[in-house]
C-alpha cells in the first residue's frame, strides 16, 4: 500500500515538474476578465496613411486594443493569431486597433512584410506612448478588450494565442451582448 502511494506521489511530482516547464514557454490561451469594468479612455491617433482614427468611431462594436512594438518578441509572436481571429469575427462587429509604440510606419511596414500572415486590421501610431499611458500600460504586449458600450472588460498582459477557442468565445460573447 505504501509503495503504491510512493509510486503515485512520484508520478504526480514528475508531472508537476514537467507541466511547469512547459507552461513557461507557452502563449496564454485566454484573457483575464477585469474585476470592475471601467470606461475605456477616449483617444485619437493616426494610421499609417495619416488618417485620424478615434476609439469613438467604433461605438457599438467590440474593440481589441493591442499595444505593441516590432522589437517585442511576444508582440511579433501573437500578431498572426490576432489577424486570424479578426478575419473570423470582424464581419460580426469585431474591430482590432493595434497601437504601435514609438515607431514609424516604415518600421512597421518592414516588420509586417516579414509575417506569414499580413495584418488587415488597423495599425495606429502612439509616437510618445501617450495613449499607452492613459490606459496604464507599462509593458508590451498588453491587450484590452472593450465591449459595445465602451467598457473595458478583459485584459491580457503578455502574449496570447488570440486564435484559441477560449479567446474567440470571450470575444463572441461580447459581440452577442446587447
Amino acid at each position: 500500500m505504501k509503495q503504491r502511494h510512493l509510486i503515485l506521489s512520484s508520478f504526480l511530482l514528475i508531472l508537476s515538474c514537467l507541466g511547469t516547464a512547459r507552461a513557461e514557454q507557452a502563449l496564454g490561451h485566454d484573457l483575464a476578465p477585469l474585476p470592475k469594468p471601467t470606461p475605456a479612455p477616449a483617444f485619437t491617433l493616426q494610421d499609417g496613411d495619416g488618417n485620424s482614427v478615434s476609439l469613438a468611431d467604433y461605438k457599438g462594436k467590440v474593440v481589441l486594443l493591442n499595444f505593441w512594438g516590432t522589437w517585442c518578441p511576444p508582440c511579433r509572436h501573437e500578431m498572426p493569431s490576432i489577424e486570424r481571429v479578426y478575419k473570423d469575427l470582424h464581419k460580426k462587429g469585431f474591430v482590432v486597433l493595434a497601437i504601435n509604440q514609438t515607431e514609424t510606419p516604415d518600421d512597421v511596414f518592414i516588420f509586417t512584410s516579414q509575417l506569414s500572415v499580413t495584418p488587415t486590421f488597423k495599425i495606429l501610431y502612439d509616437k510618445k506612448s501617450a495613449v499607452a499611458g492613459k490606459y496604464g500600460v507599462v509593458g508590451l504586449p498588453t491587450s484590452i478588450l472593450i465591449d459595445k458600450h465602451g467598457m473595458m472588460r478583459y485584459r491580457a498582459i503578455g502574449g496570447r494565442d488570440f486564435n484559441s477557442p477560449k479567446v474567440e468565445k470571450q470575444i463572441s460573447s461580447l459581440i452577442k451582448e446587447k
Binding site: 496564454g28 484573457l31 483575464a32 476578465p33 511576444p74 509593458g139 498582459i157 503578455g158 502574449g159 496570447r160
Partner: peptide, 8 residues
C-alpha cells in the same frame, strides 16, 4: 497579474 498574465 491576473491568471495567465506574464511580462518580459
Amino acid at each position: 497579474f491576473y491568471a495567465g498574465d506574464w511580462q518580459q
